[in-house]
């Protein structure tokens, strides 16, 4: 059975789920943001730049960035998720950090640290992408010097179709091969700062999927910019 219609009722295969974004939602943080895409909700809080301890971790040339990705206990669709760092969360924290670092200018803050905490009250696939979007907005809200925002979305294939922004039902599709490719792009230069893949896909489909993804990221970038400006209206 071929994949002819999107399971969640979206009209097109390159359609994103509805997006809502907000900044400045956590009072005590230096910067914060919420990014929701479909049923996936990410909250990011930025603390810092602040003093870094233990001292041996300090870098006298520039500040460091620490990201924490955390899914809340009942955020998944299945069993209770054990909160706290597990192997998956640590990996995603690491790739989030690496996807954000190219835009940040932390040389102005030697020996210090910028902490980014990303929490997920509910998830429905695409959480690392939502997390990166939220984190980049929160960093901008915190007044950290940065060259650009980072926008992220997942692309991939379900059976013979190239799709954008897979939800969990598509990721778990059993009628054919599936590939899930989270990607993050720096809009001003078009550079890709995150590219991972789970599943199988041909070279031609991969290239096409990335091209479509880049186009759709413009919508996400607009939502991020709008949310940041909204705070000061």
């Amino acid at each position: 059975m071929a994949y002819t219609k999107r399971i969640d009722g979206r009209k097109k295969f390159d359609e994103l789920r509805p997006i809502s974004a907000k900044t400045g939602i956590i009072q005590r943080a230096n910067g914060s943001a919420m990014f929701q895409i479909g049923k996936t909700v990410a909250y990011a809080a930025v603390y810092g730049p602040r003093e870094l301890h233990p001292k041996f971790m300090q870098n006298p040339k520039k500040g460091i960035l620490r990201c924490y990705y955390n899914m809340m206990p009942f955020s998944g669709s299945g069993d209770r998720v054990r909160p706290g760092p597990n192997r998956r969360a640590k990996e995603i924290s690491m790739v989030t950090e690496k996807s954000l670092l190219p835009v940040l200018d932390l040389e102005q803050f030697p020996n210090s640290v910028v902490d980014v905490f990303i929490e997920f009250p509910q998830t429905d696939a695409g959480s690392r992408c939502a997390g990166i979007c939220a984190a980049s907005m929160a960093l901008a809200d915190a007044g950290i010097p940065m060259k650009d925002l980072v926008s992220a979305v997942s692309v991939g294939r379900v059976d013979d179709k190239i799709v954008v922004d897979l939800d969990y039902s598509e990721e778990a599709y059993e009628g054919g091969p599936v590939a899930d490719i989270p990607m993050a792009v720096i809009p001003s230069t078009g550079n890709v700062s995150l590219l991972q893949m789970d599943g199988e896909i041909s070279k031609e489909m991969l290239i096409e999927a990335l091209e479509i993804g880049k186009k759709k990221l413009a919508e996400i970038h607009d939502a991020q910019r709008k949310a940041l400006k909204e705070k000061y209206k």
Binding site: N30, G31, P49, D105, A140, G143, I144, K147, D148, S188
Partner: peptide, 26 residues
């Protein structure tokens, strides 16, 4: 010329700069 931080644009002739709105004290 692009913005490197969140803030208010300030135009002085041909020079553009940004007044920050947020961020910790330096």
């Amino acid at each position: 010329i692009r913005a490197a931080r969140l803030g208010l644009a300030k135009v002085e002739g041909k020079v553009v700069k940004i007044t920050s709105l947020s961020g910790r004290y330096i």
